[in-house]
Design a protein around this nucleic acid. Structure first.
Lengths: 396, 396
DNA sequence: TGGCTTTGTCCTGAGACAGGAGAAAGTCAT
DNA sequence: ATGACTTTCTCCTGTCTCAGGACAAAGCCA
C-alpha cells in the first residue's frame, strides 16, 4: 500500500514535528509558547501540515479555563521500523510517529552469516509484525549494525566481527526491499539515541553510553548530537589497552579491554573457571549445556557464586579503568551502562563506579551519575526509529 | 580613547565578518558566492557594516576581466589582545581583526603568585605593546589559563596547579581593567583554536590538540567547535592512568600520565639521571645551573645524549599509549602535538606516532596525520584573539 | 570603437512574519 | 441565567526580508 511520503517543507514544520514527537504540548497555543513564532505564522504552518497529512487534529482537549484547544497529533498511521542487529541476535520493532513501540520481536541470529541471510530474516520478522496488525507498511526504517558505518552512505566499513558486511550497501538494499527511506548507524550509537529519547539520558546534552554486549562500544553524544568520528569508528573502546603487554586479543594487539571483558571474554573466563574447579556452580552449568555464556555467569552470580561475582567485579574494574580515562577526557554529564550484560546489574555497576570515582578527576566526577540504561533491548530499536524519524522530520 | 563598540546586527553580518576574518574573498560579488544571499541583500548588509565602521572599503582591486571590485576589509583599526597564561610564563600579543599578530611579548612568570600579581604583569605587558605603537586601545581580549574554566562566566574552577585562582572572576576583573569585552578559556582549548585558525588544523572539523607543557592537556574540537565538557574540564588527560599501580602523582593517584611525562616530570627524571651518573651531559648542565628543565633535555638530546633521547622516547611512548586510546574513542581526523616541549621535536613525535599506529584501530589510524603544531608560542595568543573575535563577531 | 565580461546598484513583487482586533468557546461567581 | 473573565484560535494589516531582473558603471580585448 502507499505510504506517507510527505516531508516538512521548512525548518518550522520540522521543529513542530519533532516537538510533537518528543512529547511536547499539542495545542496551537502551547506549541506557540515553545517555538519562536507568532500565532499567525504558527497557524499557517500547522494548516499546511494538516493538509499534507503529517499531523491530524482529532477532538478537543479539556478546557483549561477557557476555550477548549484542538488536539494536534502526528499522523496516527505513520509506522517506523527499528532494526537492531547484534552479534548473536536481532531485534525488530515497529513504532508509531511518537516512537512508541507497537510490536517487538527478538530472534537469535549469527551476524557472520552475512547480510543476505540476515536481511532475509529481518524482512521475515518485519512481515510477521505486519501480519500481527500493528502496521500495514512502513514509512521509514532505521537499522543498527555491530560495527563502524560510513554514515552518509549507510555502508559498514571494516567491521571486525562481521567481515562479510564490509562495503555492503545496507541502506540501499534495505530501502529497495522495504520501499521506504532507510538510515544505517552503529548499534551503539542507536542505543545512545534510544536512551536519549526515552531513557535515562533525556535532557542530557553530553553523555557517554557504554554498551557491553559480545564486545564493548561507546556511544558519544556531544551537544545532543551523536559523534561518529572521521571514519565512523568513534566509540570503539573495546580495543583500548587496559593492561600494557596484557592478554592477546583477537585484534592482534595485547591487553585490549575486550580481551578481559564483554560477553565473549566473560564466557571464556567462566568456562576456564568451571574447568579449573574454581566454581562448582559454573561447572554444573557447563556440564549441562556444553558451553557457557555471559547469562550463565549472571545467574551463577545471583545464586551467590563467589567466582562468578569475582569475574564480574574484575571485568567491571577493567571497564571502569577505561571509562575513567574517557571521563577525564570527555567530561560527560552522564554515563549510561547498557547492553546484553546489564543482567550482571548492580555488581557490575558498583565495580565500574568505584573505579571511575577513584581514578577520574574530582571535577569531572563531582556530579557525574553513572547509571544502567533503562530501556534494555528496546534502546536499540527505539534509537533506530529515532534515527529515521530525524531524517523524515527534516526539510526535504 | 574610545574603542569600537559596534557589533553585527544579525547573523548575515556576523557571517560576513567571519568570512573576511578567515581569509575569504573581499569583493561584494565573491562574498555573494560564498554566502547564501542575493546580491541586493548582501549589498544592504555590507552598507550597514560600512556605516557602523566594522568594515571599510579602501581602493579597488585589479580587474578580473571586467569592472574592478571594491576592496572590502575589516576595520583596520580594530585591535585584539591575546593572553596566554602558562604555568611558568605568560604570552601577550596584539592582533588586528584578521588575527594577524602585530606585537608579541613573552615573560617568565609564576602562576602560583595568584591572579592579582599576574594581572599586574599582563597589564604592564599590554601597556608596553600599546606604547610600541601597535595599538591605541583594545576592542576585546581573550585569555587562556592553565586549568579548567567555567566558560560562560569566565571563572577558573578547581585548577590544580593554580589554587589561588579558584573562583576568581577573571573575565569580569580583566574586562574592568581593560574596558573592553573579555572571554576566558582553558589554554589548551585556545591552542587548538589557534592551530585551527592559522595552523595545521585549517579546514579540519574534528581533531585533537595535545599540549605538552608543564602538564599535559588536550583540546577537543568537534564539528569545528571546541568541546569543553560539562564542568569545563574536558581534555584533562594528564591524569589518565598510563600505568596501573604506577608512580605516585601529585594528584594523589598512581600511574598518571603526568607522573611520567610533561615538563615537570621530564625535568625531575633528567635530574635523577644526572645524579645517577647515567648522563654526563645532563650532569654537567645540572652542575652549571643547579637545576634542570625540559629544555635542557632537548639540548642534550640534540647533542646526541643517549639518556636524554631515552627519556624523550619513553615519555613519547607513554603519551602515545594514552593518545592511542583517545584516537580509538574519538576517531579524529588529525592529531596535533604542541606546547613547550615541542622543542623535543621529531624524536618525540616519532615515539608518539609509533605507539598510536601500533595500538589504535586500523580504521581510526588509517588516514590519521599526527603532526607538530606549526604556530609554536603564537598558537595560544592567536586562539585567544580568535575566541574574543568569535564573541565580537556574533550578533549582539 | 564596439562587443563582451565583471561588478555593483536600483527596483519591484512575492513571501515571511508580528501583533492587534476580535470571534469562538469555555469557566466561574453572583 | 447573566455578566465578567480566560483561553484558544482566526483574520487582517502593515512591515520587513529577500530574490532576481533590469540596468548602469567600469573594465578588457580585438
Amino acid at each position: 500500500m502507499r505510504r506517507m511520503t510527505a516531508r516538512p517543507a521548512n525548518a518550522h514544520q520540522a521543529r513542530l514535528l519533532r516537538l510533537l514527537r518528543d512529547g511536547g504540548p499539542n495545542s496551537r497555543a502551547q506549541l506557540g509558547d515553545e517555538i519562536d513564532l507568532s500565532r499567525s505564522k504558527l497557524a499557517v504552518e500547522i494548516d499546511r501540515l494538516l493538509e499534507t497529512g503529517l499531523v491530524v487534529a482529532d477532538g478537543l482537549a479539556a478546557s483549561r479555563g477557557g476555550r477548549r484547544s484542538h488536539n494536534i497529533r502526528l499522523a496516527p498511521g505513520l509506522r517506523l521500523l527499528g532494526v537492531d542487529i547484534g552479534a548473536t541476535s536481532v531485534d525488530v520493532a515497529v513504532t508509531n510517529a511518537e516512537l512508541e513501540i507497537l510490536g517487538h520481536l527478538n530472534q537469535p541470529m549469527d551476524v557472520r552469516e552475512g547480510p543476505v541471510a540476515v536481511f532475509e530474516q529481518v524482512l521475515d520478522m518485519a512481515a510477521k509484525l505486519r501480519a500481527s496488525g500493528v502496521a500495514e507498511g512502513f514509512d521509514g526504517a532505521g537499522i543498527g549494525v555491530p560495527g563502524p558505518v560510513r554514515f552518509p552512505e549507510g555502508v559498514p566499513v571494516a567491521p571486525p566481527i562481521m567481515p562479510g558486511w564490509d562495503g555492503f550497501p545496507v541502506r540501499e538494499a534495505l530501502s529497495q526491499e522495504l520501499g521506504c527511506p532507510v538510515m544505517v548507524d552503529n548499534d551503539v550509537n542507536l542505543m545512545a539515541m534510544g536512551e536519549q529519547h526515552a531513557g535515562v539520558a533525556r535532557s542530557v546534552k553530553d553523555f557517554l553510553c557504554v554498551k557491553i554486549g559480545t564486545g564493548i562500544g561507546c556511544g558519544i553524544v556531544v551537544g545532543g548530537e551523536v559523534h561518529r568520528g572521521t571514519t565512523g569508528s568513534a566509540g570503539d573502546i573495546g580495543h583500548i589497552q587496559a593492561e600494557p603487554d596484557g592478554r592477546p586479543c583477537a585484534c592482534g594487539n595485547h591487553g585490549c579491554l575486550e580481551a578481559y571483558f564483554g560477553g565473549a571474554a566473560l564466557a571464556r573466563d567462566a568456562e576456564a573457571a568451571a574447568r579449573d574447579g574454581r566454581s562448582a556452580e559454573l561447572a554444573a552449568r557447563l556440564e549441562e549445556a556444553g558451553s557457557l555464556a555471559a547469562t550463565d555467569v549472571a545467574t551463577a552470580a545471583s545464586a551467590g557464586d563467589a567466582t562468578a561475582l569475582d569475574l564480574i567485579r574484575e571485568g567491571g574494574t577493567r571497564t571502569g579503568q577505561v571509562i575513567a580515562g574517557l571521563v577525564s577526557f570527555f567530561n560527560p554529564g552522564l554515563v549510561v551502562i547498557g547492553g546484553g550484560v546489564t543482567g550482571l546489574g548492580h555488581t557490575l555497576l558498583a565495580a565500574i563506579r568505584t573505579q571511575v570515582y577513584r581514578q577520574s578527576l574530582p571535577l569531572a566526577t563531582g556530579n557525574l551519575p553513572i547509571v544502567l540504561g533503562e530501556l534494555g533491548p528496546a534502546a536499540g530499536v527505539t534509537g533506530a526509529a529515532r534515527l529515521i524519524s530525524d531524517h523524515l522530520f527534516s526539510p526535504a
